[in-house]
Write a protein that binds this DNA or RNA. Structure first.
Lengths: 242, 242
DNA sequence: ATTGTTCTATTGTATGTACATATTAATTGG
DNA sequence: CCAATTAATATGTACATACAATAGAACAAT
């Protein structure tokens, strides 16, 4: 394992430390209750100050991943919800896994003023335009999902990118942006006229809405993504343990 | 309001600060979006160091109560309902977190022959009856979710259990069955007559279907659960990292 | 053997300092 | 007047330091 922190990297040291610790505690011995190195030593090992290390650990403690105890040390919390099976695949990869060949029906790129939700998520003012990408995708026969993606200006999208490539690969190679964290919200709703038309279903037909909030290594927002899936064409699966 | 921090008190300064800020932002003007005093000033006012103050503010930011923005300031966050309960919670617990009081509309327990899906999952023959529990639950006003649960004969359910108790607690104390693994499938669909009637929505209205396959410690199947959620009454949230 | 005491390792609390970064506001140049 | 530049201001990052509190371990006293 690489236990190095890059002091020259633009991503903050405490974030790097946080990610390192996440990796570190995936190890079985930690899962079984071994205490991790004490703060003073660990700070020395990572070559950062104790305060900075504590910043990282604090976050994981708050998340419930770690527990600290005076004079004892810091351990991995037992009641852990291992969401390991969350692979994080691109849409094309996901579909490939399911043996579905993808066809792109529409692709539309524009610059728009963000609505309140987006401006808030991006932490920008709403008079600053962001790149919006719309996509209608599906099987060879028919579209079954409509995507709406918004990119933070920081990413540096031009709109001329080759969107046929996997998106996260594109972000990485073209813009040096590495998507590492995704928060999702899944719900059902009835299709409005615009969506219904695109997905070729009656107005009011059931749709699965998957909102994704995507962050980079520095946990800064980079993409806001809405996916409207035609009912029954998509199932979200996950495992949790306690 | 008392805007004083007691340096002699045994309760840590950052905790005192946290509580003070909580009180402070109960004020309407803050709820409406006024920024609170900047860190440097506020630290001066409270007579504590900026680091200590940040410790307090950080906690509230983690909690989602406050949001910070560079050059702008720190504000009270808009109330968001999406609890990030990736944890394993019972329905009642989940709803409690969201501040919703639960009402049980219907509860029905029967013994039925399992259909193919269930028999397969339980790895039993379909001429062996299993306990089926149906439940219609919701807010005080109206039902918004319909559950269908099937229990493996191995669990030893009688049907006379007190189903008002949290289910997984009941399984544990009454039948020594500990649910440890849950595989879920989430999809959207259009309500059939029976479901539509129960949820008081038109036939064909959007419903979120959450299938749960629950296993015990030995990874043996113990429960099959179907949850039909009225659209918009439920959002599934999760985080994933790579 | 149990109870009490002291030692010590580890996290907890608290401060001060310095510079970085992002964004609004003011200023300047054409 | 408008665009580009600069300044000002808020949070963000990072470090060094000092002492407090807690809990377990070792040891001593009864």
């Amino acid at each position: 394992m690489k236990i190095a922190i890059d002091h020259k990297s633009p991503v903050p040291l405490h974030i790097q430390a946080e990610q390192l610790i996440r990796k570190m505690i995936e190890d079985e011995s930690y899962q079984d209750g071994k205490v991790l190195p004490n703060e003073v030593d660990l700070a020395k090992i990572l070559a950062i100050s104790r305060s900075t290390l504590r910043q990282a650990i604090n976050k994981l403690v708050f998340e419930g991943l770690l527990v600290r105890k005076k004079r004892v040390g810091t351990k991995v919390n037992k009641v852990q919800v291992s969401s390991k099976s969350n692979n994080w695949l691109s849409f094309s990869q996901e579909m490939k896994l399911r043996g579905i060949k993808i066809r792109n029906f529409e692709l539309h790129v524009t610059w728009v003023y963000p609505n309140e939700t987006i401006a808030n998520f991006f932490e920008i003012k709403s008079d600053r335009k962001v790149l919006k990408m719309e996509r209608l995708r599906g099987s060879m026969d028919e579209p079954f999902v409509y995507f709406e993606s918004y990119f933070h200006p920081r990413v540096g999208m031009t709109g001329d990118e080759d969107f046929k490539r996997p998106l996260y690969e594109l972000l990485e190679t073209e813009h040096s942006v590495i998507a590492t964290l995704s928060k999702e919200e899944i719900s059902a709703l009835e299709a409005e006229a615009q969506i219904a038309e695109k997905l070729r279903i009656p107005i009011g037909g059931a749709v699965l809405l998957r909102k994704r909030f995507v962050y980079d290594q520095g946990e800064r927002p980079i993409e806001y993504n809405l996916g409207y899936y035609k009912a029954k064409s998509f199932t979200y699966t996950l495992e949790s343990r306690r």
